[in-house]
Design a protein around this nucleic acid. Structure first.
Lengths: 255, 255
DNA sequence: GATTTCATGTCGGCA
DNA sequence: TGCCGACGTGAAATC
């Protein structure tokens, strides 16, 4: 049996299921009324309420409220999770997770456990992702003239500078060097800053060097900042999610 | 009963529990072997394997593998979730979530549902957080001389400029203006960029203006970049998570 | 709705 | 291990 579930378990059962489950590599889910306390990089307290608590064998602990994408409290993988049965029968069992670097902990007081389940999940396949920044780089590298401008030539990809990595170092039709920074989504002021930082390095030795910020879109503010600093925005419409209708791919597309 | 669970349910039961549950405001968790397909801002495919699928009544959908803090696939709140029973008995029921803006969808093919549970969770209390950037601002505003330097005076908090907001605008003991950028964690090159952007605005009219990057810590690289640009780093040790041992607060601290 | 900034961001890559 | 930047970043505040 892959899933074992216990309704209204007592503290000892909860302790056993959590302890054995995690040690043996299972995912343990708990539906309970609980109180949560966190301290570390930030700190917080959540009073009594019903939540879904998920413990993974890698040390991940998630506390989910009935709404919201993010867990209200959590511990990323690598933490040590243990369950301490309450001292007396009235005491709530304590689900306790701690990690160092940074030093932090999470305490979940399980005041009323409605249900706990142990899930011996087998999941080995890899997630296949499409549409990453790496893909955008590949596209630009193979089609620089379509993507950027006629006559441009890529000289180097991922060039290291003393101020960090720049995406492409290129030369335009006239042989003028071009610093290219690529963003997969709408370019922000931070991205402008980043490009400018690289530009300053090259402009010292060659004031002619050009700077290109390449992205599916950007705001007017960023465009103005670029103009004010003699840099350029290049729109890569091919990667704009909003204009490209979410394509109705089917499973066979991945075969 | 707050939690209702069904072991090895058939497609019709899964459809009923998911449909009724979400409509009636419950959290539905599914432990199943499934296949996942996503398309939208990015795209991806996850082959068959055992996962925990969580559906919330606000439209949140999470697919969790047995390890990792983040769901391998998800849909943030606001999506429309529906479950379509397979056409025939052999067809896997399809859990389908869609949203617009951006336009994207998630398909979870439930090939083998080990268990589905409906959790009518009641959770009304608010989460109380400590240690935010706002708190750091308050601290600096009330103790500028301890936090920053002797004789300094805060002139303005959250001043708007044509290039964005700066955290504090101050004057030192000599009356020289000081631009202050505050970060609640280790300051990065990006934060340096941000401060520099503001600085350039002020230096045009007054080359004497000072720039302060205030954070619990930063890297040597950032310190050097600051020095090279005649700006300063101010360490706010009070907010350093690493030096401050995770304090052993108790529930009573929040009363 | 668009833009900007914060976050217990998390995650991965590389020195 | 620490630093650095991408992310389907998400979420809040502001305009």
């Amino acid at each position: 049996m892959t899933v074992e579930r216990f309704a209204s378990p007592d503290a000892a059962t909860v302790a056993r299921v959590v302890g054995d489950g995690l040690r043996e590599g299972a995912v343990v889910s708990i539906e309970a009324e609980c109180e949560v306390e966190y301290d570390g990089r930030s700190g917080g307290y959540l009073g009594p309420g019903d939540r879904l608590v998920v413990c993974k064998p890698d040390g991940t602990l998630l506390v989910h409220r009935p709404s919201g994408h993010k867990p209200v409290n959590w511990m990323p993988g690598g933490a040590t999770i243990k369950l301490e049965p309450g001292e007396s029968d009235e005491d709530a069992p304590l689900l306790y997770a701690r990690r160092s670097n940074p030093n932090e902990f999470l305490r979940v007081y399980l005041q009323d456990v409605y249900s706990v389940s142990r899930f011996d999940a087998e999941d080995a396949v890899e997630y296949q992702e499409r549409g990453t920044e790496a893909e955008m780089h590949e596209y630009i590298e193979s089609n620089p003239e379509t993507a950027l401008e006629a006559g441009i030539r890529i000289v180097e990809h991922e060039r290291e500078t003393q101020y960090g990595y720049l995406d492409f170092f290129a030369q335009d039709a006239d042989g003028t060097p071009v610093v290219v920074e690529v963003k997969r989504r709408q370019a922000t002021l931070n991205h402008f800053d980043q490009l400018k930082r690289y530009m300053e390095l090259y402009r010292e030795s060659n004031p002619e060097v050009r700077g290109m910020l390449v992205a599916p879109s950007t705001s007017d503010r960023v465009k103005r900042a670029l103009r004010d600093n003699d840099m350029e925005f290049v729109r890569l419409a091919e990667f704009d999610v909003e204009t490209r209708e979410a394509s109705e791919t089917t499973l066979t597309d991945f075969s």
